[in-house]
Amino acid sequence: MLNRIIAIDCSPPVINVLNDFLGDTITLESLSFKNIRELKDCRMIILQEGDEKPDLLKQIRKLRYACHFRNIPIIVFRTMENKGSMEPFITAGATEVISLQDPPAAIRQILSGHLIPNRQPLKEETEYIDSFVKNTCAVLKTVASLDVSFEEVYFDNDFKIFGDVSGLIALTGGAEGILGITFYWPLAQTIIARMMGTDEDKINAELIHDGVAEIVNMIGGTTKKDFVGQPYHFEISLPSVIVGSGHQLGHSDKMPIAVLVFRADSQYFAVQICLKPDPNGKTNGK
């Protein structure tokens, strides 16, 4: 059980509020940013906005990166009301921005909500998730001789992209949804170089865009074959590429999004899937 909450450079009022809300079951660790060693057992990260913290956005970005695509909530506390939009924090990677002026009940509920443990996939979700896991590993092994291991899955409400480059593909036909893969530049560069059998320094931005699109295309293509004759069978469209971090994309039908975290050596990447089975359960293979 992960019961560690890290409060980074937080002032006593914020610490007090947190202690009040969190009770005894959870360890609150107060740290300064430069002393953070690892986030491994961390269940939540708390930061505080302040005039003397020009680097806060940068810190959020670094922390989000260090989370390796895991679902660790980063909560920013604002001590002053109406200091502008919360959007920059969210874009940088914060999960939630709370003001000390917000109703205490709201603060407590939102913190509690984020502290509730993640659920495991439902049986019907496992059916498709397993296939995507298997094929993601297989595709990267085949084209880039890269050994990839599946780390964990969690579910989110929105399609959030925190990474440098993402390949996105719409799933249509019988089952409908979206498939996305998100990398940071270094891993993307390594994979594309291995695919092309060339040195990493020969891989430019254009090739990375192109290659990431091709990877998501191959994962989608091989996975749909597994679903022939099942309600999860889909067709793929041409991929899009999204550059940059901090995109939150809306999506349809209130379907939860499965976020699969993978590891390749010491680097991580994420595959996101939102898949709504064909209501008629027919296969779409023509």
Binding site: I110, I116, P117, N118, Q120, D156, N157, P256
Partner: peptide, 21 residues
């Protein structure tokens, strides 16, 4: 805030109940 609270529950498990959507 209310909406954000509800969103924080997606993908969680309340006792014996998985919050799906």
């Amino acid at each position: 805030l209310e909406k954000r609270f509800y969103q924080s529950l997606i993908g969680k498990q309340l006792n014996n109940y998985k919050v799906v959507s």
